[in-house]
Simulated scan of single mutants.
Amino acid sequence: MGGGAMSRQEDGIDWDDAYANAAHIPGAADYPSRWAEAAAAFRAGAFGECDLPYGHHPRQRFDLFMPPGAPAGLAVFVHGGYWLRFDKSFWSHLAAGPLARGWAVALPSYRLAPEVGIACITHDIAQALGVMARLLPRGPIVLAGHSAGGHLVARMICKDIHLPETVAARIARVVPVSPLSDLRPLMRTQMNTALGLDEPEARAQSPVCHTPRPDVPVVIWVGGAERPAFLDQARWLAAAWPGAALSIDAARHHFDVIEGFARPDSPLTGALLDAVPT
C-alpha cells in the first residue's frame, strides 16, 4: 500500500467514518473552545512555567506545573489530534488531578504532520522526556496520552525507543487513553494524505507490533461510547501486550473520556497514580 489515501469504501468499510469522532458526538464543535477556556483559567491560577524548550522548533515546548512542596513524581500528559492538530494550550486543566495529589505535571506540544512524519513526532516526545527528567531528576515518571497522544506514550516503552536508561528506568506507569495502537487502518483514510504512512512505516510506528518494556504497568483506558474502531484499537493493544489492563469507561465518548484527569479522586487519575511507589 502506498503513502497516499486509499478508497474510503475499501472492504465495504467507510474508513474515514470509522475514525471520525466529531461527526458522532453531540455538540462536538463546542469542545475545543471549552477545552481552551478551561485550560486558560487553570493556567491563570497555577504555579509553574510555560513554553520551556526541549528543541529548536517553535512547537518543541512544554508547560510544567508544580505542586506546593517537593513533588511526588512527574506526570506527563500528551495531547491527541491525529498528529495533525492541537497543542498543549488546550489541555492545561487536565493537570489539576495529579497536581492536587502532589505530582508535578508536564504537557508537551510537538511537531505536526504533514510537516514531519509520525516517526519524528515520536522522537519529539522521547526528546521532551529527556529534558523533563533532567529538570526533575528524582522520583517516578508516569505517562498519559489521549488518542494520538495515547499512541505516543505507548511508544515510549517500546523496546525500539532509545530513551536514556536513567529516564526509562523511572517510568513507573503508562496510561494510553483511547490510543491508536495499530496505524495500518489509517492508511485507508483520507488523513493519510497528510500522515504519509506506508506499510513499513505503519508497522514500525504501531505499538501492537512492538514488545514493551516488561517492568512497566500499562492501563489502557477507553470510553464505552466511543467509535467501534477506537474500542478495537484499545482491545488490540491489550491483546498484544500481555499484562496490560483494559478499562472501558461506560458512557464516555472520545471527547469526554479524558475529563477525569482534572479531578484528583477520579478513577482515571487513580489509574495513573494509585500504587505508584514515590
Rank of each mutant, 00 (worst) to 15 (best):
G27L: 09
M187E: 01
A23H: 12
L52Y: 03
G243T: 00
A40V: 09
I258H: 05
A40C: 08
W83C: 03
A229V: 04
W15G: 12
D215P: 07
E226A: 06
F261Q: 09
E115M: 11
A36V: 04
G73K: 10
R85I: 12
T269N: 08
G196N: 06
W83R: 06
A245V: 13
R188C: 14
S92E: 01
P228S: 07
A104I: 05
I25Q: 05
G73P: 05
A271Q: 06
G130V: 06
R213Q: 13
R170L: 09
M1G: 12
R184D: 10
L136F: 03
A128T: 08
P98D: 02
A202P: 00
L268K: 06
Y110D: 00
D30W: 11
G81K: 04
R173I: 03
G224I: 00
P108G: 11
F42E: 08
I161C: 12
L195K: 11
Y54Q: 09
S109K: 11
W221A: 10
L186C: 01
G260R: 08
A154H: 06
A18R: 15
D63W: 01
D124I: 10
S206D: 02
T211P: 00
F77R: 07
D198T: 02
F86P: 00
S266N: 00
F62G: 05
A36D: 09
G243R: 05
I141R: 09
L272H: 05
A169N: 14
R213P: 01
P108I: 11
H162N: 14
A40S: 14
L186P: 03
V76F: 03
A271P: 02
A95L: 04
R111S: 06
V219S: 13
P277A: 07
A234K: 02
D265G: 07
M191R: 13
P228T: 02
L107A: 09
L64T: 08
M6C: 06
H162Q: 15
R173T: 03
P98V: 03
S266Q: 00
F90Q: 12
V208Y: 12
L152R: 05
R85F: 08
H57M: 09
R213A: 12
P267T: 07
P68D: 14
L135E: 13
H151Y: 01
P98R: 11
Q205N: 15
D11V: 07
G270D: 13
V257G: 10
C209I: 00
W35F: 15
S92G: 03
L152Q: 10
W83N: 00
P140M: 08
P242V: 09
A106Y: 02
A5S: 14
D87K: 09
P212I: 09
